[in-house]
Design a protein around this nucleic acid. Structure first.
Length: 205
DNA sequence: TATACGATCACCT
DNA sequence: GGTGATCGTATAC
């Protein structure tokens, strides 16, 4: 008997990063606010960053204070501050000591939409969470949650929500510069035809 | 101490 | 299509 709101456990995140990136699609990201309000949405777009050999990965130059959470156990939230303005949410994968994570790039809002809209200056539904910086703003995710454990945290976690095998597409990762191999790796995954995927209408990659 | 720049976004032409 | 905002981090000096 599976609970209606079953949280994904450590075993889910400990697997191969590409598998986790694909299987996170269709699951439900949940953010509990201090006042008890529940904000949630279905994950529709992810990206994999795998190991020190991946030139696009924050760990490509080794371990630093900033990226140290990526070296921790699977299931931790790695949240970083970027471009002086935005946060991005990742889930750490694979074995402790190996730096890898999946960036959550977009969700489809399902609960607490009015609150998300307030966090996003009243923008329309389809612009609330269709990008990694936008979804962190909508869900009030910032540095204070960096390193928290998605397997036990009361504030941030992911629930099993996928119904049937979804139609998944892959493309190059967004915003990745540097060497050709890093740019061309098809490690971005998204639900086909979902309107909440980022960069709608643009060429993939 | 100084500098360059980034896993983005919103707004411009 | 292009670009400014805005600041933590890594790296160089």
């Amino acid at each position: 008997m599976v609970s209606e709101h079953m949280r994904l456990g450590r075993e889910f995140y400990q697997r191969d990063t590409l598998t986790v990136a694909k299987e996170l699609l269709g699951q439900r990201l949940v953010r509990m606010m201090d006042d008890g309000q529940r904000l949630a949405g279905i994950i529709v777009e992810t990206e994999a960053y795998i190991g020190e050999d991946d030139q696009a990965c924050h760990a490509s130059h080794g371990r630093t204070p900033r990226n140290t959470v990526m070296y921790g156990p699977a299931g931790l939230a790695y949240i970083y501050f970027i471009y002086g303005m935005y946060y991005c949410l990742n889930v750490v994968t694979e074995q402790e000591g190996f730096p890898a994570a999946v960036l959550i790039r977009a969700i489809e809002p399902t609960e607490g939409i009015a609150r998300m809209q307030a966090h996003r200056q009243g923008r329309p539904l389809h612009e609330l969470t269709n990008g990694p910086g936008k979804l962190c703003q909508a869900l009030a995710i910032d540095r204070s949650l960096n390193g928290c454990d998605l397997c036990t945290s009361p504030w941030l976690f992911i629930e099993l929500a996928r119904q049937d095998e979804p139609l998944i597409a892959a493309s190059r990762r967004v915003g990745v510069r540097g060497d050709t191999l890093a740019r061309e790796r098809p490690w971005r995954f998204f639900l086909l035809h979902n309107p909440f995927v980022s960069h709608q209408g643009r060429a993939p990659g």
